[in-house]
Write a protein that binds this DNA or RNA. Sequence first.
DNA 1: GATAAACTTGCTTGTCACTAACAAGTTTAT
DNA 2: ATAAACTTGTTAGTGACAAGCAAGTTTATC
Lengths: 228, 228
Amino acid sequence: MPQPFPATRNTDQSLTQAERTARAEAGMIETAIELLNTVGIQGTTLVAIGDKAGYSRGLVSHHFGSKAGLFRAVLKRITANWTADLHTALDDRTGIAAIGAAIDAHLAHVLRHPEYIRAQNILWGAALDPSSEFKPNVAEFMQIQRESVAAWVRGGQKSGEILPEINPQRIAEQYYGGLIGINSQWLVSPDFDLAAAYTDFKRNMVRLLSAPTTQIRKPDTLNREERQ
Amino acid sequence: MPQPFPATRNTDQSLTQAERTARAEAGMIETAIELLNTVGIQGTTLVAIGDKAGYSRGLVSHHFGSKAGLFRAVLKRITANWTADLHTALDDRTGIAAIGAAIDAHLAHVLRHPEYIRAQNILWGAALDPSSEFKPNVAEFMQIQRESVAAWVRGGQKSGEILPEINPQRIAEQYYGGLIGINSQWLVSPDFDLAAAYTDFKRNMVRLLSAPTTQIRKPDTLNREERQ
DNA sequence: GATAAACTTGCTTGTCACTAACAAGTTTAT
DNA sequence: ATAAACTTGTTAGTGACAAGCAAGTTTATC
């Protein structure tokens, strides 16, 4: 039954098939993230998802094929969210400035959406499993992230602020590994000082990338700069 | 029936209760590690452990209380193994030398016992889960590891090779995070160059800790040193 | 000091509530 | 009416626990 005012379609009465699908899938993904954060991967059962999202226990399988399929979709959604945040934060920067801004954005993102980060890392942990169905997705995501970082380094090398001897791929590995490691420690230890670790990481990263000529100063000056 | 030669007790015929227990627990732990590496945490069922270890499916619960209890024991065993390796590698070193030696030992250990590292990380991943029963164990282990690193830094500060302004705790977080992050990337991406990442990490760590006076050189000299 | 009963511990099997997946249905949009 | 979204019935497999059996170990008795 076609409604006269398409703008008010989502008044719970009659929805387009596409709308129903979108609403159901989004609801289940959101519910899964919530459950992952509260009762973990074990407690995130199909029944629990269905109950909390207002559907039956069978709908997850219908839409995502399997529980692993739903988790794949969760990762996809989280990744998209982070990528959007990063793009607006970067704003066409490259080189050292891009890396610094990215680390800042990362910290802000973690503090803003801790439940996303937690869910992401829980699923990444599950991906280490040899029988994991979404390990390739995780590997690919990391590969793409590293490639961005390597591109920033190459940009800095083009402009001369980063020495040409530095290997962009190696920096990308260190950069990305550092972020993963900091997050891992924070997720396990509730009293871990995330902000301090991030700012320290940023300072170290910038120092490693800066050409040695910028470090030929008197120790006093250097230290004051470090504290800033 | 008491045997005349206690030294030949373990000839598969008649075992002391203690011997039986030790053999059974060690067998199940070893089997669990093997299964974690091949079929993952999902495939590591009580039935599979019992089958592979030559016991029944009920013995795990009997000895370790639960599946989580077994995994706790697995982590304990892996940790003990790594700690022993580290101690022999360190040999009373402190300061930058200790950190360098520890990173080398870490790489050697990962290459020597990849199945241990993989199992450890799979279980750590599971520990991120809010319902995890052994998250405190993981957090405590990380805390102890960080304390060691911080002690090395303080040692280096005492001898003067590390600047007093450097925060040992922050360094420990970066150090440990870096190792976790590198391992995580390697575990997910089969073609990840682990050795290259480790040597790069070591070089960066040493550079960060070295007093700036050692960096006031001509760029040429610095670069040659970097390549070594 | 040998020997058998009393006891303890290692280990297995039966059972139960719960889970994911799939197939066969019912309801809703087109 | 027909195809999609969604629900319900069913099944094989899971971890935990309890009851029971089979070894090993201690103690009492001769």
